[in-house]
Amino acid sequence: MQNYFLIGTMFLYFNGCSYTFGTDCVSERNLWEENRFSTLVSKHFNADHVNASVKASSNDEITRRTFEFLKDNTCDYAIIMMTHCTRFELSRRLMPGRSLGWLSEEEQNIYNYFYKNFYNDDVGSLNFYKNRYILEQEFKKRNIPLILLQYMPVSKNNVWREMCGDDLPIVVKGMMDRCDSLLGRRKNKEYFWSEKYNRTIDHFNSKGHKRIADYIIGQFSERYDESVF
């Protein structure tokens, strides 16, 4: 097991899905790591960091990976962007979408069957807040400051939501959502335009990553004494 903790250096832990991984966040040198928000935040504070995010992760996976990390490691601060509440980790890594592209027709039908027969908004909300709750509790118990963000709003109230802390900052909102969000509506031109593909894409671009990084840096400065960095 790799020991991520470097004594004497501020160490940041990032986790999430493809948004945190930096998918489609290409730099001039075509390296997505350079411009993703985890790198920008770490550079700002001259800190070491690990970005443990994995593309297409569900919140089940993000939570489980975080617990696995915490078992043998620690960090000074953790930044986790929770993903779409519709994703599930069962024997398949389930996510909705009529045509996900990388699936065979048969596999796509299996995915669609799940969302048609076993899923509704309550299921997504319960699972989202259950994962959020155990993350918050674990970091609190370990006395590690945690900055949580959520990619999109999650409706529906439940006991898990009531047990969680205040509402989290939302990264993007859908067409019908009225809440504030860091990047505005999903797929807007400013933060979702790709020069490389010359069209709007599913993941926010490097400008979006800069906006997220600035928000996190602001949160650090607001919540914690910046002199510790």
Binding site: L90, S91, R92, L94, I110, Y113, F114, N117, F118, Y119, N120, D122, V123
Partner: peptide
């Protein structure tokens, strides 16, 4: 528990495709 309670005898398709 998803949108309903899932049981092995009532929801075999769930256990076939999504459970291990």
């Amino acid at each position: 528990t998803l949108n309903k309670n899932i049981f092995t005898n009532r929801n075999p398709s769930f256990y076939e495709e999504y459970y291990n």
